[in-house]
Simulated scan of single mutants.
Amino acid sequence: MATEDMSISKIVVDLDDIKLFGKWSYRDVVVIDPSLKKYISLRPVIVPHTAGRHARKRFGKATVPIVERLINRLMRKAKNTGKKHLAYNIVKLAFDLIYIKTKENPLQVFVRAIENAAPREETTRIMYGGIVYHVAVDIAPMRRVDLALRHITEGAFNCSFRSAKPIEECLADEIIAAAAYDTRSYAIQRKEEIERIALSSR
């Protein structure tokens, strides 16, 4: 068959056709904080599972869908280690609960929670003449996202530990509280503590 007779058709996929977990649209989900826009990946995927393709790339974490990074953080605790399908189901149920409680797109609520829970300043140790000083420094945007995800998942685990409340509900409550900048949120408490220590070290 001659090559000129062959027609190449482009497949155009509408953004509304690709929904997280087959439910939540990526349309109109915005990152307000300009420093975090590059590091909160909202690339449309149905199933957030990239199988570690980013691992060998410099700053590859920034290209991983932000929901998958939350799922990966949930696998860090002893009970969930390596159980990605279990962590996936926890996040999926938590997003359903967020929608029931807020009537908003859970993806937008989660992005807002990360922006609110990401600390802007912390301290680092500097040794000068045998004496250790703690000096306040600005936090890199990627580390800000890492810390926010860590504190959100820690708050959810602390809430569900030795409690009748399931982890899905704890995670949903933690994300909603962080999105509303509620000081009862563990992630917000940790952010304010880190920034308060940094302020005193200036």
Rank of each mutant, 00 (worst) to 15 (best):
4 E>I: 09
8 I>A: 10
9 S>W: 09
10 K>S: 06
10 K>H: 06
11 I>T: 12
13 V>M: 10
14 D>G: 10
15 L>A: 14
19 K>R: 15
24 W>T: 05
28 D>C: 00
31 V>K: 05
32 I>A: 11
32 I>C: 02
36 L>W: 02
39 Y>A: 09
40 I>A: 11
42 L>E: 03
43 R>G: 03
44 P>C: 04
49 H>D: 14
51 A>M: 14
51 A>T: 08
51 A>L: 15
52 G>V: 06
53 R>S: 15
54 H>Q: 08
56 R>T: 15
58 R>M: 08
58 R>S: 08
62 A>D: 14
64 V>L: 05
64 V>G: 02
64 V>E: 01
66 I>P: 01
76 R>M: 12
76 R>D: 12
77 K>R: 12
82 G>R: 06
83 K>G: 00
88 Y>P: 03
88 Y>K: 03
89 N>D: 15
91 V>K: 00
96 D>W: 00
98 I>N: 04
102 T>I: 07
103 K>Y: 06
104 E>S: 10
107 L>F: 03
107 L>R: 11
108 Q>M: 07
109 V>P: 01
110 F>D: 02
113 A>D: 12
114 I>V: 15
114 I>A: 05
116 N>L: 03
117 A>V: 06
118 A>R: 06
120 R>A: 04
121 E>V: 12
127 M>P: 00
129 G>F: 03
137 V>G: 04
138 D>S: 13
142 M>G: 11
149 L>V: 07
153 T>D: 01
162 R>Y: 05
164 A>R: 08
165 K>Y: 07
165 K>G: 00
172 A>L: 09
172 A>H: 11
177 A>V: 01
182 D>V: 07
187 A>K: 09
188 I>E: 09
189 Q>Y: 05
191 K>A: 09
197 I>T: 11
198 A>Y: 12
